[in-house]
Design a protein around this nucleic acid. Sequence first.
DNA 1: CACACCGGTATACTTCGGTAAACCGCTATC
DNA 2: GATAGCGGTTTACCGAAGTATACCGGTGTG
Lengths: 137, 137
Amino acid sequence: MHPTHPDLSSHECSTAMRSVRDALDLLGGKWKLPIIVGLTSGPRRFKQLQREVVGITAKMLSKELKELEINGLITRHVQADVAPVAVTYTLAAYGRTLYPVIESLHTWGQQHRRHIMHPETLEATAAEWAAPDALSA
Amino acid sequence: MHPTHPDLSSHECSTAMRSVRDALDLLGGKWKLPIIVGLTSGPRRFKQLQREVVGITAKMLSKELKELEINGLITRHVQADVAPVAVTYTLAAYGRTLYPVIESLHTWGQQHRRHIMHPETLEATAAEWAAPDALSA
DNA sequence: CACACCGGTATACTTCGGTAAACCGCTATC
DNA sequence: GATAGCGGTTTACCGAAGTATACCGGTGTG
């Protein structure tokens, strides 16, 4: 048809799309990111984590932890000597590389909550945040 | 070694968790973010978008676009005068506030792909990225 | 005329994410 | 001895998410 639409970024766009979907493959679903957030403040034990990630069932937590471990984002260590075997989960170094992602989601979610509660300030808000036109970085 | 990290207080942690889950409520699922990425480089028509977001069915695309519009992230406009009614989707101002999120996911996904393909450079990689200790901002 | 593109909708189906609840061996507490 | 905590696994089940396919009215193309 009309190949003349000056689409600067059709390449960049598909690159971005691929990367985002790669990331989503690992982090997608309802629980993975909340779990990682729970681990940002230090090692946690199973039940402890289950209490923090409100609403998750033991089965889901168990399953998600396995997947996160397989992908190298978290580490599981067992202390067999102590009383009723202590199991601890920690953010692995690789998992810590997710901080920027967590942070941006955290910030956006916070703003979003305000935005929902005070919709009258919408335009101001949207303008203030200022969208950096990066993404091509 | 010693990740003497700015331990998120338990309060900050639950705040972060709540925000992240708020964001995930809007953006969760397999398609929403890829669709938004597709719209970052300009307005798109339905079929055009379907071609870019590889693998999505018309039904899903239609459903997701509706939800994104309801949440004010994108805008739909219809041009009724032209031949076979042209429908165009655009990132709304509010949707553009997601750039930081998209960008961090994009960056991480890109690194992750490299990481998968050259696992031997793992330690170097993880160290290099350096996790910004923010998040408590 | 036959065919393809557009922007979807309708119907039917399958898969998977997720829940609820019971259960396991072990330990410590009342 | 009963109960509760730990770190899960197992079973059973449901509903949402996602897929596949066909179809619609309109138009323009060969």
